[in-house]
Simulated assay, not measured.
Amino acid sequence: MKSYKFKVNENGYTVNIKSHEDNIIQLEVNGTSYEVKMQEEVKKTKTPTLIRSASKQPSAPLQVNPKSAKTRIVAPIPGVVLSIDVKVGDTLKVGDRMLVLEAMKMENSIVCEKAGTITDIKISVGQQVLHDELMIELE
């Protein structure tokens, strides 16, 4: 299993741990086998869990420039495109759902913030998108 080398009072020792079950350890020191019983059971460490603190700033809603001719719909968060509910040439009004983006096992509906016509779709279903990646253009 594991091998260690120790030096105690200028004497060298090679320790090979053969097995470890509960609080019993089978080991070999310089060729001699030993069975060691530990007083307390060794606690197994679990995989650490990542805990994120709450955001200090609330997320800002998607802001659209009402004076621009073209509107670019970008991914607000990284995720996977689950469905695209529009196609090129569709006319949308404010609040129409354009697509569903899955992020951190949650489905997020991306809705139209400005009325217009779809001119280009840059994504496909199943595609992974990054934050601020262009997904849809409309006029």
Rank of each mutant, 00 (worst) to 15 (best):
K2M: 14
K2H: 14
S3P: 02
Y4T: 05
F6T: 07
K7Q: 14
E10G: 13
E10Q: 14
G12N: 14
G12D: 15
Y13C: 11
T14P: 03
T14K: 13
N16K: 15
H20V: 13
E21K: 12
D22Q: 12
I24K: 08
I25Y: 04
I25H: 02
I25S: 09
Q26I: 08
L27Q: 02
E28T: 11
E28R: 07
E28S: 10
V29C: 11
V29G: 03
N30I: 09
G31K: 03
G31T: 06
E35Y: 01
E35M: 05
V36I: 13
K37W: 08
Q39T: 11
E41A: 12
E41H: 06
V42D: 09
K43D: 10
K43R: 09
K43Y: 08
T45R: 09
T45M: 12
T45A: 12
K46F: 04
K46D: 14
T47F: 01
T47R: 06
T47L: 12
P48T: 06
I51R: 10
R52K: 14
R52E: 15
S53P: 08
S53M: 11
A54H: 08
S55A: 15
K56Y: 10
Q57C: 02
Q57N: 09
P58S: 07
L62R: 10
Q63A: 14
P66Y: 00
K67A: 15
S68Q: 15
A75D: 00
A75S: 05
A75F: 02
P78Y: 01
G79A: 06
V80N: 07
L82I: 14
S83G: 09
I84C: 02
D85C: 03
K87E: 15
K87R: 10
V88N: 08
D90P: 12
D90A: 13
D90F: 01
D90E: 13
D90N: 15
T91M: 08
L92P: 00
L92N: 00
K93I: 11
V94Y: 07
V94F: 06
G95P: 04
V100E: 04
V100D: 00
V100Y: 02
L101G: 03
E102M: 06
E102S: 02
E102T: 07
A103N: 07
A103L: 07
E107C: 07
E107G: 06
I110G: 00
C112A: 15
K114T: 08
T117N: 07
T119M: 05
D120A: 08
I121G: 05
K122M: 09
K122Y: 01
I123D: 03
V125K: 03
V125F: 02
G126S: 07
G126C: 09
Q127K: 07
Q127C: 09
Q128E: 15
Q128F: 05
V129A: 03
L130A: 15
E133D: 14
L134P: 06
M135W: 03
M135E: 00
I136P: 02
I136D: 04
I136L: 11
E137S: 06
L138T: 02
E139V: 08
E139T: 05
